[in-house]
Each structure stands twice: as C-alpha cells, then as structure tokens.
C-alpha cells in the first residue's frame, strides 16, 4: 500500500482497520500523523452528527402505531377507538350530573372515547411536548383552521406548542397548546375527520368539548369548561 492509497482509504473509511493499513502506518511517519489527525477529526464529526433526539420519540412512534392496532385497554387503546370506533364498552365517562353521561347512545360513544383518548394524551404526553419546546409549521396549522372554518384569536392568546397530533390517526391532526387569560387550553384540529355530534366529556381531571366543524372536527381540552367555552367563542 502506498501513501496515496492509504490516504484515500483512511478518508473514505477511517474506522476500518486492515492489516495493510497498520503496516503502512508503522512504516510511514507522515501517514501516521494523518491517521492521528483523522482519528481526532472523526471524534468531532461523530459528536456533531449526534444532534439531540427529542424526548419520548420512540413512545410517540409507538403511540401512533398503536392507533392503528385493535383496541385493548389503556390510553393507547382509547386512541385506537378513534380509528376503529368499535363499541368497546368502556364506561370511563363519569362527567356531568344529569348530562349525557348516564347512558350514552352508541352513536355518541365513539365521540366520548375520542375525547377521553385526547384527554389522556394531554395528561400523559403533553408535559413532554411542552418541555421539548418544539415549533411546528404555522402554515399547516392555519390551513387546518381554515379548513375547519375557525380562526386563531390574535388577542390575549399565545401558542405554547404546535405540532402534529398522534391522537388523530391519519397524521393530519394538529396539536396546539394555547395560553389564554383563563388558563391553558389544548386545541386538536382534525381536518377530514367528522364527529357525529358535539359532546362535552369530563374525564380524569379535564373537560373536553369534541365537535364537528366545517370539513372536519376539533377537540378542546382544559381543566374547566368555562375556559374551553371562552376560547371556543374566540375561534368562531
């Protein structure tokens, strides 16, 4: 192996160790220097290539994946009900006295499940999303809003998080966390997904409004119904 060959090989695949290379390095000081230089360079290159990976990435991949799987139990199964809308008899809504929680008809049951799945997602995953402080595509959000006939209020409302929503199975959902004067609200936009009816669902310690809208539907989640209605008015 001559110096030129050695140079070409070490620059093309520095990590590869061959007998020929070892022999050349032992016999050639210039190439030994180069090998050391390349070694340091590779370490720097490797560090630079390892950009930080967002927290819970694998969990989000699996969550979205689970959405396409048959329902079983737990949060992921609740999300699955969005797709399958199978009548999984889960009596999780214990919400409003005298309201539709007594014996929800089958048609509204899938709305309840979707809302509950969304609430679970907000409670279990949103803190991670907020911690990531990631910026989504505002253009896509605006497009989704337009499609649903909604507008984002400019006054007194700030966007804390914007990203794709894994709760909406086909990947078109937008997940928006808004800060309003009355508190934090999560707005999930689901263009192209029609909900049969408008429902108010209390689950765990959140309340959700799930509603059909022009060419799609949306879900609003907050800790109080008052906050949700306050924001909803502004969206119209």
């Amino acid at each position: 192996m001559n110096c030129f060959e050695f140079r070409r090989k070490i620059l093309a695949s520095p990590r590869e160790r061959t007998r020929e290379r070892e022999q050349h390095v032992r016999a050639c000081a210039a190439c030994e220097d180069l090998a050391n230089e390349v070694e340091r360079f590779e370490a720097g290159l490797h560090d630079a290539a390892l950009v930080p990976v967002p927290d819970a990435l694998a969990a989000r991949v699996l969550l979205r994946h689970k959405v396409h799987q048959p329902a079983r139990f737990g949060v992921l199964a609740l999300a699955a009900s969005l797709v399958l809308a199978v009548g999984v008899a889960l009596q999780f809504y214990g919400g409003f006295p005298g309201e539709e929680n007594q014996a929800a008809p089958a048609a509204t049951r899938s709305e309840h499940q979707a809302a509950a799945a969304a609430i679970s997602y907000v409670l279990d995953y949103e803190p991670q999303l907020l911690a990531e402080n990631r910026a989504g595509d505002p253009g896509e959000m605006r497009q989704a809003l337009v499609q649903l006939g909604l507008r984002l209020p400019a006054d007194g409302v700030t966007v804390r998080y914007l990203g794709k929503c894994p709760v909406v199975p086909d990947g078109t959902g937008e997940h928006i966390v808004l800060k309003t004067a009355l508190g934090q609200v999560t707005l999930i936009l689901a263009p192209g997904r029609s909900f049969a009816s408008r429902e108010v669902v209390a689950y765990r310690d959140r309340t959700a409004i799930i509603s059909p809208a022009r060419a799609g539907g949306y879900i609003l989640i907050s800790d109080s119904q008052k906050t949700i209605r306050h924001l909803e008015k502004m969206l119209m």
């Binding site: 110096c3 030129f4 140079r7 070409r8 620059l11 093309a12 695949s13 520095p14 210039a30 190439c31 220097d33 180069l34 230089e37 390349v38 360079f41 290159l45």
Partner: peptide
C-alpha cells in the same frame, strides 16, 4: 463512487493538514 464521495466530504469538512502533503506525494 461512495469512497470518492466520502473522501471528498471529509476533505471539504476539514482542510486536512495531510492534504498538501498528499498532493505532493501524488
């Protein structure tokens, strides 16, 4: 072609001290 691209990529990322020496050797 892969080897060529990898070599060039590294040369581009860093003007290697060995580069000039290499050219002389070449």
């Amino acid at each position: 072609a892969v080897m060529t691209r990898l070599t060039r990529a590294r040369l581009a990322l860093r003007k290697m001290p060995g580069l000039n020496a290499g050219r002389r050797m070449k």
